[in-house]
Design a protein around this nucleic acid. Structure first.
Length: 291
DNA sequence: ATAGATCTCCGGCAGC
DNA sequence: TGCTGCCGGAGATCTA
């Protein structure tokens, strides 16, 4: 389940491998991940372009594709064509790996972008993920990006910012943290981790958390994401980085239902909340009626 | 009107 | 062995 740290790990890996390099060709093995974009248009927008920048917003990866022969702008008067943006989202099972051309193509291969000696390959077992080549305007019109909440690793992230986002939310804090319009990039793993570290029960009503708790939570969100980025993400499900390496972050509660709490030793509880599996410690995270 | 709930996409896997 | 149901990020579509 790629979340902010996994996408950031991928972004850094891609920066090492494909930044300033030119796409010489494209293979579309499964057009489902183009999410409706015509295959011809995708090919046309990508082929011959050079990777100018690799950015992340929440769980989205945005790769700027400029013209390959930018130097020729100096020679003629024709305006440089506008850049396109390769817009990626891995959703649940998406993977991106940069492989040598000789390396065998893995299962669930959807798209390959070829650089001279390497191929950036997009794999997705469920094809929920997406990869499209969009204009600036088309990127701007993606609703999920337009309403995306603040980046928890950026300057300015603090308890006051989070408090403003939670004020009007009457649902439980856990599903609220998964709302990308509230906070960018947090998914199931890090929502459970941050709540555990903050000692906040996942069923507490978001709007009823006090200022101290919100400040603590803003801190643990940032802390857990920072640690996970440093560890190259978490490998649950299928996540691997651009080189196929597994993440080294070890969650304390996520996917540990029934196992002992690493702080107090009591068995961790697993419930479904807002349709999502949720793990917490009944002792370390006191329930709403005991707060 | 808007927040919140529900459905959808998909296939590996657990459990029987 | 083979069936059934579970699981989830985020957009679409409902409902109160």
């Amino acid at each position: 389940m790629p979340e902010l740290p996994e996408v950031e790990t991928l972004r850094r890996g891609l920066e090492q491998k494909i930044l300033h390099r030119t796409i010489s060709g494209v293979e579309v093995a499964n057009p489902k991940v183009l999410k409706g974009q015509a295959e011809d248009q995708f090919r046309e927008r990508v082929t011959g372009r050079r990777v100018e920048q690799i950015a992340r917003r929440g769980k989205y990866l945005l790769i700027t594709l400029g013209r390959a022969d930018a130097a020729s702008d100096l020679m003629d008067a024709t305006p440089s064509p506008l850049p396109y943006f390769l817009c990626l989202h891995l959703k649940m099972r998406g993977q991106v790996r940069v492989q040598s051309q000789e390396e065998a193509v893995g299962p669930y291969h959807c798209i390959s972008l070829f650089f001279d000696d390497q191929a950036m390959r997009f794999y997705d077992m469920w094809t929920w993920g997406e990869m499209r080549a969009l204009t600036h305007e088309e990127v701007q019109s993606i609703e999920g990006l337009r309403v995306m909440g603040p980046e928890p690793l950026a300057d300015g992230w603090d308890g006051a910012l989070l408090a403003g986002r939670l004020k009007s939310k009457r649902t439980a804090i856990k599903p609220t943290l998964l709302d990308q319009a509230v906070i960018a990039g947090v998914g199931n793993i890090y929502a459970d981790e941050a709540l555990f570290r903050a000692g906040i029960h996942p069923q507490r009503r978001a709007s009823e958390l006090n200022a101290v708790e919100i400040m603590r939570l803003a801190g643990t969100i940032r802390q857990v994401l920072t640690e996970a980025v440093a560890a190259g993400g978490t490998t649950s499900e299928e996540f691997v980085d651009a080189e196929g390496q597994m993440g080294r972050f070890r969650p304390q509660v996520y996917d540990r239902g029934g196992q002992p709490c690493l702080v107090c030793g009591n068995g961790l509880t697993r419930i479904r909340l807002g349709g999502r599996g949720t793990v917490f410690c009944q002792t370390c995270q006191p329930p709403p009626d005991r707060v």
